[in-house]
């Protein structure tokens, strides 16, 4: 016998993952999206992202400082929130409005509820909703990258599609003519900074999955449900539906947030499917074009119940 059996209290499975490293990986995964938004929307986009990161980090630093709490700014989560907020706004948004969103996300949604790990919904998405309510005009005045498709310049692809299908019921079947999938895939269309380039989001998502930061369950179930439901409703061509709007960005980077998504695989599946159903229903049956933000926020609020109902039972434990 060469090896001694070591006896130690739980946890027995160790990992080198720390909050710091996870957040660093998320930032690396977001880099392709940041670069893509810089290429598509120009320098303005990069300035917005930089300002937003600075705003979030500063809010977090000052809050911990003023409230005499242990300084938590070095865990990099504020940087992630900052990037995500900037990726959720149009390139023409005034700087001070982004900073307002940063303060809402970090102070109100995150720190007032107890800081990292206690936020009840995704801070970046909550900030997006508050900004949308506060600045309805500037939050929906999208700018268009050079070479935007003709017929797509009305607004985001989703609202163009909505307008088309409202005009004539048959228009929906002719969508291919207006939005070719390749342009949607590489992001040559209107929208917020981070949502247009599907390619960059997919690269980031695959990196996160390979590094083991996220499990593919939530993004895949989210996208698959939306795809199938759009197919069933016949409102928007299914492939166009998942390549346009914020669904890819939301599915990969927002819905997978640790604090606001369920623990177990079964729970994650319920969460992803719920997000998908809500997104498709909101897009099809309400008069807003985009449903990803609200669907993820609503499912965020349901996470405690999903966790409770999908908890794993200990082997040999009570049947109930």
């Amino acid at each position: 016998m060469t090896k001694l059996l070591s006896v130690a209290p739980a946890p027995h499975i160790r990992s080198k993952k720390t909050t710091n490293l996870i957040m660093l990986d998320v930032i690396i995964a977001l880099l392709p999206v940041v670069v893509a938004s810089g290429i598509l929307f120009g320098l303005n986009a990069l300035v917005l992202i930089a300002v937003s990161v600075a705003g979030c980090v500063l809010s977090e630093y000052l809050w911990c400082r003023l409230m005499k709490k242990p300084q938590c700014v070095q865990d990099l989560s504020a940087v992630v929130t900052g990037i995500l907020i900037a990726l959720n706004v149009p390139a023409s948004l005034p700087i001070w409005q982004v900073l307002f969103g940063d303060v809402v996300a970090i102070i109100i949604v995150k720190q007032l509820f107890g800081g990292i790990g206690y936020n009840f919904v995704n801070p970046a998405l909550a900030a997006r909703v508050v900004m949308g309510l506060s600045f309805p005009a500037s939050m929906t005045s999208y700018t268009y990258p050079a070479g935007t498709l003709e017929g797509m310049s009305g607004a985001t692809p989703l609202s163009s599609i909505d307008a088309l299908s409202n005009a004539t019921p048959e228009a929906a079947t002719h969508l291919g003519k207006y939005a070719d999938l390749f342009s949607l895939f590489i992001g040559r269309h209107g929208g917020v900074l981070g949502e247009t380039c599907a390619l960059a989001i997919l690269i980031g998502g695959i990196y996160l999955i390979i590094r083991g930061i996220i499990k593919p369950i939530i993004p895949l179930s989210f996208l698959a449900t939306t795809f199938l439901l759009h197919y069933a409703f016949g409102s928007i061509a299914p492939l166009h539906a998942i390549l346009s709007g914020g669904i890819l960005l939301g599915a990969v980077f927002m819905a997978t947030d640790y604090t606001t998504s369920p623990y177990t695989d079964k729970g994650k599946l319920v969460f992803g499917v719920g997000c998908g159903i809500l997104t498709a229903v909101i897009r099809t049956y309400t008069n807003t074009h985009e449903g990803v933000t609200y669907s993820i926020l609503i499912m965020n609020l349901l996470v405690p119940y999903i966790n409770k109902l999908t908890r794993k039972k200990p082997y040999g434990g009570a049947a109930k």
């Binding site: 001070w96 307002f100 508050v130 309510l133 506060s134 600045f135 309805p136």
Partner: peptide
């Protein structure tokens, strides 16, 4: 142009 619309709505009230 520097006003925050949400404050006059109900979320702003609760906040």
């Amino acid at each position: 142009e520097y006003t925050i619309g949400v404050m006059t709505r109900s979320p702003g009230g609760f906040l």
